[in-house]
């Protein structure tokens, strides 16, 4: 059966994910070492140790995302995060920065290393470099590849692959996107926050709701229309007299129907995005995907999805996996 890797923004979400059938959960510390560094989320050292013990009792693994890029002169914060994850009983760390991968390989050789999507490793040469040089065992592939490209990569690499199947979608080369930095001075790569809530303002403008990021209006939603979180890449802008989503529609990834194709492409693990979402969301999505991977493992069709209402913009896409042009 394909491994289901599920989000845990809080200890309660971790328990919900494990009880709903997650084979593994991923989580992070409440600081800049983690690409979901949002207020009220994440784990203290003690919470991680408790969460790992709970998951292990239920037969699930805990993967700790330390997937931002260490800042010059402050590397100790990232090094300490790797050491503390190991001490708390993490089954693997998910890393993006080349230097931090090297540090983890040297200082904690027994700790399994996964390459984060933030490393944007999208071809066999770079993945094999990480695998051969630093013993990276698994790569989380960027959300810009088609199923055929994933199959081609898997034929040539000496590591497991993990792909996103549900949740928020990045259209940019992850780990290299500077849109949030441009608007707010803070980025997912250095500070762990894409479109930080400290720079988000919602304003009622008559019957419409305006969503602003760093003073820029990203979206104006008519009364009753779905309202997305204001990320620049999913904004609705007016350009050359035309108003629309210039970069990407505010739709969430739902690749549940592609699970058999992804299995055929040699994918080891399926990842659900959403560490910023509630335990109710985690429970519902994990249950649905656990049923899907069990169905695929026994040759049955994937059960029809019921998850659209939980999606950003309440619309879903298969993203780059099945590319089409408009």
């Amino acid at each position: 059966m394909m491994e289901l890797v599920c989000p845990a923004g809080t200890p309660a979400a971790l328990r919900a994910a494990v009880e709903a059938g997650a084979h593994a959960v991923y989580c992070g510390f409440a600081d800049e070492t983690n690409a979901r560094n949002f207020p009220g989320l994440n784990f203290s050292r003690a919470e991680l140790a408790e969460g790992a013990a709970f998951a292990h009792r239920q037969g699930a693994k805990v993967l700790v995302a330390i997937n931002t890029f260490p800042q010059a002169g402050r590397q100790a914060l990232w090094h300490r995060a790797v050491a503390d994850a190991a001490a708390a009983g993490a089954d693997a760390v998910i890393l993006a920065d080349l230097g931090l991968v090297a540090h983890a390989a040297e200082a904690h050789p027994g700790l399994r290393r996964h390459l984060s999507v933030q490393a944007a490793a999208a071809n066999p040469d770079v993945i094999n470099f990480y695998a051969e040089t630093f013993g990276v065992r698994r790569v989380v592939l960027p959300r810009v590849l088609s199923v055929a490209e994933i199959a081609a990569i898997n034929r040539e690499i000496d590591a497991e692959s993990e792909v996103f199947v549900f949740g928020g979608l990045c259209v940019m080369a992850e780990g290299r996107c500077a849109l949030s930095s441009y608007a707010t001075g803070l980025s997912p790569n250095m500070n762990g926050v894409c479109s930080p809530p400290s720079h988000v303002v919602y304003a009622e403008e008559g019957a419409a709701l305006a969503a602003r990021l760093g003073g820029f209006t990203i979206q104006r939603s008519a009364k009753g229309a779905p309202a997305p979180y204001p990320t620049l890449c999913k904004g609705c802008f007016t350009s050359a007299g035309t108003t629309g989503h210039v970069f990407e529609d505010p739709a969430s990834l739902d690749a549940s129907e592609l699970i058999p194709a992804l299995a055929g492409a040699g994918v080891t693990a399926l990842k659900i995005e959403g560490r910023q979402r509630s335990r109710a969301y985690v429970k519902e999505v994990v249950k649905s995907f656990r049923a899907a991977v069990e169905a695929v493992a026994t040759g049955r069709p994937v059960p029809a999805g019921q998850l659209a209402r939980l999606s950003e913009g309440q619309a879903a896409t298969t993203g780059a996996y099945a590319k089409t042009w408009r």
Partner: peptide
């Protein structure tokens, strides 16, 4: 019982 983001997206 509900997800905050979903409630927010749906207004």
């Amino acid at each position: 019982a509900y997800d905050g983001d979903a409630l927010f997206f749906s207004r």
